[in-house]
Design a protein around this nucleic acid. Sequence first.
DNA 1: GTCTATATTGCGATAGAC
DNA 2: GTCTATCGCAATATAGAC
Lengths: 210, 210
Amino acid sequence: MPDGRSGSGRYSHAMARRGSYAKGIAKREEILAVALERVATQGFRRTSIRDIAAAVGLTQAGLLHYFDSKDELWVAVLRRRDDADRAAQWDAPDLASLLAAVVRHNAEVPGLVQLFVNLSAAAATDPEHPAHGYFRERYESSRARMTADFQAMQADGRLRSDLEPEELASALLAVADGLQIQWLYDPTRDMAEHVELVTRLAMAEVTART
Amino acid sequence: MPDGRSGSGRYSHAMARRGSYAKGIAKREEILAVALERVATQGFRRTSIRDIAAAVGLTQAGLLHYFDSKDELWVAVLRRRDDADRAAQWDAPDLASLLAAVVRHNAEVPGLVQLFVNLSAAAATDPEHPAHGYFRERYESSRARMTADFQAMQADGRLRSDLEPEELASALLAVADGLQIQWLYDPTRDMAEHVELVTRLAMAEVTART
DNA sequence: GTCTATATTGCGATAGAC
DNA sequence: GTCTATCGCAATATAGAC
């Protein structure tokens, strides 16, 4: 994505075209930022397209010029979060620990959890939903990367050898997702703790247990 | 998981009258059955109360005489499923196995899974949602009963003693919920298998492992 | 190109007639 | 108990102003 920000003031005709383009990009970024801020602070359910539009000085129809639909906007917000998480460089020895770290961080951003839970549910039941492809691919790639990581860990003897890496990957992602829901109903639940519990169970242990 | 509560007994005010009481009950049951059938065949998102009403020979307003709102109707459908699950008398040695059995059965009824996933997500983010109380209590009671079961299993030496029973209960429910979503995106995933994987990891083992 | 204004559609919900 | 009629809302589509 071009990052060029237009200067303010008057433009020649040519500048105006480039300027308008850059302005459009900037506006799009502003919408994403505001959408994230609104959903984070006032919750998913209470954040309508009209709210966001008003907060960036547009009408609802004006906003939908930048995103084809409300759901496309939400997908863009989630992609942005994915990018931020990827850029954050958590220090985790493996992908299971990374998942726990990301989950721990998510507890600070309830609005995003609300968004994720609602959108993933809505898109799951409708193949035509704008977010369907996003989630499908996200699960597939997360599972694939984790599976590879677990295979390596089994080769190193860090992970129990008597379980299917892919099944464990699915199960860990599921714990993270399922706990998000329980956590929304009861915020005293510690999401990351549960991911770590299952991870711990899957780790090869040196010490005997009772 | 079946929930320990009486399920099917929410009637709207008008039902309390004598007169055609039995007929009213029968109609209500018919609506529940048809609602289940519609959501199962055409999916949750595309099932409006107008659809259901037409299928039972009523208008939308006529149907809402029996249920205060669309979401109340969905809750009644889910309570009915809980009742049926409870009545089914699965032969399972413990609640973790029971959960796996119920989950395995759920795979035969995708429409109900869609309904559960969507409604639990929508109600999670809105305390005023008609289904919020239902899910909150359902999670709480399922977790409580499972926790008690796990404590007994630890006393018997059937379960690893180095983990929190309540945490394990939460995690198992979360695996079941999270896998529902992954399964909706990719029906080749075996939901029950994953529940059993985590259960197996938590069980005390007699044999040595690698 | 970017945006506003307007129209249309479909939904759940409600009021009141019978 | 069920209807007709209508409301308000959200999402979307389109025409055309600038």
